[in-house]
Design a protein around this nucleic acid. Structure first.
Lengths: 327, 327
DNA sequence: ACATGTCTCTGCCATTTGTCAATGACATTT
DNA sequence: AAATGTCATTGACAAATGGCAGAGACATGT
């Protein structure tokens, strides 16, 4: 029956009316029949008068365009017991742990994907999201699926650096904003100035003041962590000269997140450099209700622990290895 | 390579650590690797140390339990051009049209499924949903996927009938409430009383008064439509005797929705019967912001048109044939 | 009018997924 | 202790899907 149907296909197709149904929106049509009504691609092809391969292509398009979305309940991930332990142990509001055994994509991409799912789910219609930068944040931004959030604002948390890499702060924010169809507000200022006086001057600029006023209204922030051993992004990106990092390390700092340095006990570490560093004041930052830190990998363990002790994040997204080390 | 791997599987499995990762939540684990990381079932089986068939079963469980959900963007359905035409022509807030060419399940189940997707997407955390009854509403309730909406209230819109069928008003409401994990408030009163005096008396009962007060706070209602020709559910269900329906028909009524009769022009039709009929006053009903009518099939066309003219619904969910007839 | 480039669609084959009867572990009853 | 029932797991097989190279449609430039 299925066999003998093959030769009829073409004839049957010709007999059919041109595909004008469902507003001619074949992508939608195919997606509905496949995912909701559970028809086989064959059947859909027959009914729509196209080849099965085309149906396959339509379905792929539907997934790409976000007409159909496949979601994994993030609350279930938060309920997984490693996550629960971290949540209790570190006083986190929420915690998400990426399983170790995964594909062979780089870890930051995998964590980024997990982060994307969580951000998608948490985002509210009128949120103001402060976004820092980093490899994992960028991965997250790329993994976000297209959404309609015209009321959301994505704001740059830190000043910019010379973009020697493909992930500048601006790129992270604009990437996220475009996925969400949200407003993007960049901070048009260097992240590091040549002297303290210049910083003070700049901070009084109306445009900059306005931006920091906006940041104070953030409902959510999103940032990575970095450790300070060896060549990290901080220096590679040209954001900060090695000598300054050395200074912080000398003062005991083990990590950097969202603009702040901290030591192994979670104490904030400051040096002269802070007076030239354009960043949201820590008190303001700590007032943001949801502060999402995303990062993992064995090398970051100390930094993440320090960051947790410093209570910089309220929500942590990390990988299994790091999570296990943290309990 | 794939061939020769087969015999190794069992040995490989034995070598593996017991599956303790991801909180031992294999369902979640498999779902993540499959849907997010895009691994093949084979690979997952290998990494988890179970057979591929088990992976398949886990994935199925994940879908059944709602750990993963597959959604079709309902706004896209509303944007399909038939829906747009109805929206403009009838002043509906929203309109959704089910494609004709679908599986071979009964139409009301198919429309119910579409309705379920839309309700799932529209539902807010504190909604109060008034639910009438009918075959399609019941189908909808069965097609809802499990969700967490503890703040939502599902309230019975009309009084009860002798449940000669499997779809009583109570069954519709409790079904919906249990899917949503919402509060279920039933109306413990007959839908039709023997005389007007009895109705008046009953309406003054505190419990009943309370219920109607709750209904006035509804943010959303959900109901079907029925035509009045031939044996409809109204009589089959024992809700209403044929003679009364005859009376309404004699007065020009062509349909019945959510407790009200109306004629072909959309005028509300009343008879003596109304004075014995326990139902939300129409003025109150019309004040509910979202009034979702779900129903289709050629036989209901006239009834649906009358219902639309009577402005009973603000949102219509129907099938393509009916939609085409309505433009 | 013809050539050229760009896209989409097609038909086929390798791979992946879904189904099912049989197996074995474990709990309950006799 | 043996018999029986229940249920998750498995391997083998059938069906469905994904990928791809080439055909065909369509538009644009020569």
């Amino acid at each position: 029956m299925a066999r003998s149907a093959q030769p009829q296909d073409k004839a049957a197709r010709r007999r059919m009316a041109p595909p004008m149904q469902f507003g001619g929106d074949l992508v939608l049509w195919a997606a509905w029949l496949y995912y909701e009504e559970g028809l086989k691609q064959d059947e859909i092809a027959l009914r729509l008068g196209i080849s099965r391969a085309s149906v396959f292509n339509l379905l792929q398009k539907a997934r790409d365009e976000g007409v159909v979305t496949i979601t994994i309940d993030p609350s279930r991930i938060a309920r997984a017991d490693l996550a629960m332990k971290l949540h209790e142990l570190w006083g986190l509001a929420e915690c998400y742990v990426l399983p170790n055994e995964g594909g062979d994509t780089p870890l930051h991409d995998r964590i980024g994907r997990l982060g994307a799912r969580i951000v998608e789910q948490k985002i509210g219609d009128e949120d103001i999201i402060g976004v820092a930068w980093g490899r994992t944040v960028l991965s997250l931004s790329k993994a976000l699926s297209p959404m309609q959030h015209p009321g959301v604002t994505v704001a740059q948390l830190t000043g910019s650096s010379m973009a020697t890499h493909d992930f500048s702060p601006e790129f992270c924010t604009s990437n996220i904003a475009s996925r969400l169809n949200a407003r993007c507000v960049n901070l048009h200022a260097p992240g590091v100035l040549s002297n303290a006086a210049m910083k003070d001057l700049l901070m009084r600029e109306p445009m900059i003041e306005q931006h920091f006023a906006l940041l104070r209204r953030c409902t959510m922030t999103l940032f990575g962590v970095t450790h300070l051993d060896g060549p990290t992004l901080l220096q590679n990106s040209g954001f900060m000269q090695p000598s300054f990092i050395e200074e912080y390390r000398a003062a005991g700092a083990v990590g950097f997140a969202s603009g702040y340095f901290f030591d192994i006990e979670g104490r904030i570490v400051t040096t002269d450099f802070d007076s030239r560093h354009v960043v949201m004041p820590l008190e303001d930052f700590r007032r943001v209700p949801s502060r999402i830190c995303i990062g993992g990998g064995a090398s970051k363990f100390e930094a993440i622990r320090g960051m947790l002790r410093a209570r910089i994040a309220t929500i942590l997204i990390t990988d299994q290895t790091t999570a296990e080390a943290l309990v």
